[in-house]
Simulated assay, not measured.
Amino acid sequence: MTETPNPHIVDADSLTGEMHPIRRVVVALGSNLGERLSSLQGAVDALADTPDFFVTSVSGIYETDPVDAPEDSGPYLNAVVLADTTLPAARLMERALAIEDAYDRERSDVRNAPRTLDVDLIVVGDRRSNEDFLRLPHPRAHERAFVLQPWYDLEPDAVFPDLGPIADLLAAVDSSGVRKREDLSLEVE
Rank of each mutant, 00 (worst) to 15 (best):
M1L: 10
M1N: 01
P5E: 13
P5D: 14
I9A: 11
D11C: 15
A12Q: 10
S14H: 08
S14E: 13
L15D: 07
T16I: 13
T16D: 11
T16Y: 15
T16L: 15
G17Y: 08
G17K: 06
M19L: 13
M19A: 07
H20V: 05
P21V: 05
I22Y: 10
R23D: 13
R23K: 09
V25G: 00
V27D: 00
L29V: 07
N32P: 05
L33Y: 00
G34E: 00
S38L: 12
S38K: 12
S39M: 03
S39W: 00
Q41R: 09
G42Y: 15
V44M: 08
D45C: 02
A48P: 02
A48E: 11
D49N: 10
T50K: 03
T50M: 15
T50E: 13
P51F: 11
P51D: 15
V55N: 01
E63T: 07
E63W: 01
E63M: 02
T64C: 12
T64G: 10
T64Y: 13
D65M: 12
P66Y: 15
V67H: 08
D68Y: 08
A69V: 04
A69N: 04
P70V: 05
P70Y: 11
E71F: 05
D72I: 05
Y76T: 00
A79I: 08
V80A: 05
V80M: 09
V81F: 09
L82T: 01
T85S: 15
L87K: 05
P88H: 06
A90N: 04
R95K: 10
A98G: 07
I99Q: 03
A102Y: 01
Y103E: 00
D104K: 02
R105T: 03
R107L: 08
S108P: 01
D109S: 12
V110I: 15
V110F: 08
A113K: 02
A113D: 14
P114K: 00
P114A: 06
R115G: 03
T116M: 01
D118C: 08
V119T: 03
V119M: 07
L121D: 08
V123S: 01
V124Q: 01
V124K: 03
D126C: 04
R127W: 07
R127E: 15
R127L: 11
R127F: 11
S129D: 13
N130L: 09
N130A: 09
D132F: 10
L134H: 10
L134C: 09
H138S: 07
P139A: 14
H142K: 02
R144P: 04
R144T: 05
R144M: 13
A145F: 12
F146G: 00
V147C: 03
L148E: 04
Q149S: 03
D153K: 01
L154G: 01
A158D: 05
L163M: 13
L163R: 14
A167V: 06
A171D: 14
A171M: 13
A172H: 10
A172T: 03
V173R: 07
S176H: 10
V178I: 05
R179N: 05
R181I: 04
R181G: 02
E182A: 14
S185D: 12
L186D: 09
E187A: 14
E189N: 11
